[in-house]
């Protein structure tokens, strides 16, 4: 019997880890397995779109956080204290930001929502000011926001470049597979959603399943999302045979 061709399909979280050049031993293991056994690594175009839209959304989220959230809090606090906006930032400004972020934490707790993204901006921006103050440097609000924006632009533009190199121009170990989202794919995605696999992950899973069926290849969908992995058995019960695995173990699922 001729053995089916094998391939890995990667989830967006692994692609992002690769873009960020994170020290990720699990991804490194998968890449090594792929290299040694000549197994191609693919992403569906749905994963490609998710990665690109995440970079874009993160960029705009940071822009709004800097230009609106942080700036407004600092200026309003200065107005209340009757301190000119061009005076150097001091401990009172840091405490104004503390008040701002505390309000967000309380509001989020009351609404049962997460403050994750804003907490990231909070930690980063306070550390940014602390670095300046620790060095005895003076910086105005405008100067501080300018530095924050410059730093974000410098880094996010590089991330977007690396992202394009990897997923758009395929200058790495990943190739994109365009899989048409027809009725069958949509139906499988709906079933996956019924098992708690949320969009767009449900679509990624359905696309991999479709690819297997059309190309008669054996695919393993590698992800770090254990919420998806644990739903594999449910999908199998519905005759949706697809291997889903942590990248560390993906090779052993063929």
């Amino acid at each position: 019997m001729v053995q089916k061709a094998r391939c890995f399909f990667l989830d967006a979280n692994l692609v992002l880890s690769d873009i960020l050049n994170e020290n990720n031993p699990r991804l490194a293991k998968l890449k090594n397995d792929a290299h040694l056994n000549k197994i191609p690594c693919y992403i569906s175009d749905s994963v490609k779109n998710e990665v690109k839209s995440k970079v874009q959304r993160t960029t705009d989220f940071l822009g709004t956080a800097i230009r609106e959230t942080v700036y407004t809090a600092l200026v309003e606090s200065r107005d209340k204290r009757k301190i000119p906006s061009d005076a150097p930032i001091d401990f009172s400004d840091v405490k104004a930001l503390e008040d701002l972020f505390s309000e967000y934490h309380v509001m989020a707790k009351r609404q049962g929502s997460l403050t994750g993204p804003l907490m990231e901006v909070e930690q980063w921006s306070i550390q940014f000011i602390a670095d300046k103050l620790d060095k005895g440097l003076t910086i105005t609000i405008d100067g501080f926001l300018l530095e924050l924006t410059k730093t974000v632009l410098l880094n996010i533009s590089t991330i977007a470049d690396v992202c394009d190199n990897l997923v758009e121009f395929e200058k790495g170990h990943i190739k994109t597979k365009v899989i048409a989202v027809d009725e069958r794919v949509k139906q499988i995605a709906r079933i996956a959603e019924g098992y708690g696999i949320h969009a767009p992950d449900s679509l990624h899973v359905a696309c991999v399943h479709q690819y297997q069926a059309l190309k008669n290849e054996q695919a393993v969908f590698a992800t770090r999302d254990y919420g998806i992995i644990k739903q594999k058995n449910g999908l199998w019960e519905r005759k949706i045979h697809i291997e889903i695995s942590d990248p560390l173990y993906a090779f052993y699922h063929f």
Binding site: N21, W124, N155
Partner: peptide, 27 residues
Amino acid sequence: ISNTPNSTVNMIGNLLGMSSATLNGGS
């Protein structure tokens, strides 16, 4: 992306790791 520690890249990486829904409701 350089391997050397960079707090901005770390912060962006953490944001990228969050779900789109979290990011949309985050500010």
